[in-house]
Amino acid sequence: MSLSVDVHIDLDGSSVEARLEVEAGEIVVLLGPNGAGKTTLLRGIAGLLGPCGEVSVEGRAMDGPRTFVRTEDRRIGVVFQDLLLFPHMTVEKNIVFGARSSGATKTGARERAANTIDDFDLRALAGSLPRSISGGERQRVALARAFAGRPKVLLLDEPFAALDAASRVEIRTMVALHLHTFAGPTILVTHDPLEALVLADRVVVLERGRIVQEGTPDDLRSRPRSSYVASVVGINLFHGVATGGRIETGGATLVAATEIDGEVFAAVHPRAVALYRNRPEGTPRNVWRAA
């Protein structure tokens, strides 16, 4: 009951190479700056880019040597960045379409859609067209539509990007609740570190098409391995060469708490920085004069 990905995608001159395992029930947040290839990776997993390496769901190959299962047969649900609710269908019809397309009979689909509508508290909006409801409501419908298809894997691409800051927190809580009821593997793409830290069981950081770090939110916070990761989790990261605990970063010298040698990253948490009117004595190891 898991998702296994090992792909190489070439697209418009840039490439995405990623190896990734997601357990059933696990929520992996794919974090990275804009243009890192996060959406491309999701599309590759969903089969929208043609064969691109190895993808398997629950041990069954979707993509691999001599195998390519088409998107419509993969049972990988996707919530797209701008949701793509069908504008000519009511909320209810959108959700019924999701259920029906996954192979349910006409009555089965209707029944399943009715349950999903109740689960997502959409009864009052069932007859409305997508354009006449709010952004947060549309978000809920998109998630409900994906759930109604009973996917084995769930992929969400920047699900909160279209929302205003006020409704974002509320919708995030709602989405988190529903994602925790989902039994399969989930990958959620975002460029917002806060979302990553709040929603993720595990964070995978993608930069320029490569995975640069993966771990729990705590791992990322305490041991960021790139300046991007450090900056998004609020930590200053320096790159330099250490000799016996003294680190030359090219502009300044830092003294580490431990004796280390070689190429290192030095993380300076904002919490650890203090300002003094006079040169301090005692505790601080590193003292810089403010300009």
């Binding site: 929208l48 998107t71 419509e72 649900g77 996707v78 397309s101």
Partner: peptide, 29 residues
């Protein structure tokens, strides 16, 4: 027509014919 609507339908498991009938034709009506 924004082809991503068709992609969205495909991820739900809709066949090409179903996408044509339920998504494409109504949207270009």
């Amino acid at each position: 027509l924004d082809r991503r609507y068709e992609e969205a339908a495909t991820t739900m498991g809709a066949s090409r014919l179903s996408v044509f009938g339920h998504v494409i034709v109504p949207m270009i009506l």
